[in-house]
Design a protein around this nucleic acid. Structure first.
Lengths: 178, 178
DNA sequence: TTCATTCAAGTGGTCTGACCACAAGATTTA
DNA sequence: TAAATCTTGTGGTCAGACCACTTGAATGAA
């Protein structure tokens, strides 16, 4: 027989279903999810599989689990997956470079956005500024979120960031004289 | 009693231990990890907990699981983590503009990488090229991955992409005369 | 009443043992 | 030799049993 691709594992299916449930039931960050046992019943899968799904989501920082209380939807702010994955990344220097480059690209992009503004030189950018503020100023939340994640992976210090920012700014001033 | 912080859950501990084991045993991408049952024994924790850890790692794209064969360490390059996080990131962030800007930033970054190469003008970039090829040429898998996802969300056509690429190239040529 | 104590129910955390589905190699058989 | 068949080892899943913890209700003492 051909074409009989086996279905995705239960725990992967569970993740999707849980996400759908979150949307359908309008569960918001901070709200409580159904208990593992209830999920198990509603999704008709064993509790173990539910747990595997929940543990994975937890590791991603999408949910939070409190023993004796329940499982709660979380805001994406503090993703713990970063330190975790970075240890894996550290095995490979090339990948580390990629992360660094990626970060630089995002930062350049941030500056490019700001540079289009008339008040670019005046207030928004002082040499005391750091990218957290600049990202806010740029007003692209998507950019900022991704930058935050990448920054975490990159693992550079605030000082290093600031130094490079200065360098970048110098370059910008030169290429974009007002 | 105060200050009795309870230990991290088994499955979190398992993740760390598995990581250490990978390092200690010099397991490289593509290699096989010990079986779940063996891990269970070696780490002295139940197989369920081992599985919760492995499932989480799998969702992060750090390992790959093949039924009947085993569990294998994976190259970080194909981490599914990015698409995963992205679905979440895009949740509250439907701002189309942000996505477009983000895409442009990534593409500029790609060009910037290529521009540093001596053969920039010669072969790598022809006006027939599109960003798929350019991203490959840039050689930053992380960049490409994120770009692909963003592109997906941006929903622009290949033609639109090519047009903008041409515009960008023009600008680049102007600002970076060889 | 009011406050503290106790208790019961619900929840996540973990383990065990049992199957199933699958892949690969060894073994048997034609 | 070549095909068909075990056998073994692996992940996938489930059910049931405890444990640890939180909460709130029930209970009792002031």
């Amino acid at each position: 027989m051909t074409g009989s691709q086996r279905p995705p594992s239960k725990f992967v299916a569970a993740i999707s279903q849980i996400q759908e449930m979150i949307k359908a039931d309008r569960i918001r960050p901070g709200d409580k999810l159904p208990s593992e046992r209830e999920l198990s019943e509603r999704l008709s899968i064993g509790r173990s599989s539910v747990r595997e799904a929940l543990r994975a989501l937890e590791l991603l920082g999408l949910i939070e689990t409190r023993r004796g209380e329940g499982t709660f939807l979380r805001d994406f702010q503090d993703h713990q997956l970063v330190p975790l994955i970075s240890t894996f990344i550290f095995n490979d220097d090339q990948k580390k470079e990629h992360v660094q480059d990626m970060k630089a690209i995002l930062e350049m992009g941030c500056l490019a956005i700001l540079a289009k503004r008339p008040d670019f030189k005046n207030n928004a950018i002082s040499l005391q500024a750091d990218f957290h503020e600049l990202m806010d100023a740029a007003g692209n939340s998507l950019l900022k979120k991704i930058w935050l994640i990448i920054s975490d992976y990159a693992g550079t210090s605030r000082e290093q960031d600031r130094e490079r920012l200065n360098e970048l700014l110098m370059g910008f001033m030169k290429n974009n004289p007002s």
